[in-house]
Amino acid sequence: MSEGAAPAPVLTVTALRAYYQTRLFGIDRDVRAVDNVTLHVNANEIYGLAGESSCGKTTLIKTIAGAIRPPLKVQGGSVEFNFHGRRVSLYDKNAPDLADIRWRHLSYIMQGSMSVLNPLRRVRNSFVDFAFRHIHKPMAEFLDTVRAHLLRLHLQPEVLDAYPHELSGGMRQRVAIALATVCRPEFIIADEPTTALDVIVQKGVLTMIREVQREIGSSLIFVTHDMAVHANLCDRLGVMYAGRLVEEGPTAEILREPRHPYTAHLIASLPRIGDVAPKKALEGTPPSLADPPLGCRFHPRCPLAMDICKRENPQMEWVGPVHRVACFAAQPGKRQ
């Protein structure tokens, strides 16, 4: 967008709206979990998606992954991938069958990988189920490829013969990462892959994710509510609040100089060495996405709220070459 000469982004999301539509006792209700989100992810980039629980992060990446099942429904906007020139638009009228794209070009590391492997199948069979059709080799050679890949990720090839319950939590997560990267996909979606792990294992897993991303040069969208993880891993960061993207920019820049009061608060909540004063919690709770407040959705909790914030919805505007923010207080021209 701003960098004209840069290669086309791998993922472009435009004005995406995805609502949960429920009908209870004859009353229709829309939960606007993803409301007018526009973003892109460049090649060879780790894009972090931050925000507290139930802000629409997981819904956004479900929509990006094409994993829509009722009551979730895409209301508008587009999700377009560009896999080395092969364009795939997920919510077009003539959207392709995703089965041959999945895992070859687009793979997924899921939250809670304790349970993402079939408990009754040996790890070997999971690899065969997911990856065999994409790696055009006979079975023996395919398994050699898998073994080599596991070794590269510091896993013993013997894990192939194990059942998931025979592996530790950290190993299972690493097996899940190996599974998601064995086909060397251009785009990987990682949904809180480290949330259930203790910090030591977490560090190992993060290092591994970065290593494998560098090695195969894929793009990664990494979702977590843990700002510390974002600070360590991501090139660029997008912050979501109540179904909307409120700030986006290079991780270092956002951490140093957050423009949106919500981002500033998320960052202030990070513990720092030498801190003595207890952390202040943000007043109030996130709004209900079924009935969000008018104007800026953050205004009821915002220390900088002005009159306009209650009436008008701030749009994402550029405040730096690659830094956007949706806040009237941060957009000097809009001050009233």
């Binding site: 041959d100 997924y108 993402v116 199948r121 069979n125 189920d129």
Partner: peptide
């Protein structure tokens, strides 16, 4: 709605395989 079934669907594992080895067997 178990994780491993949804994951297999996201992974584009063949439908028949999901039905037999992931759902029925369990």
């Amino acid at each position: 709605s178990e994780d491993y079934v949804q994951y297999a669907e996201l992974g584009g594992v063949a439908r028949r395989r999901i039905l037999t080895s992931y759902i029925m067997r369990n």
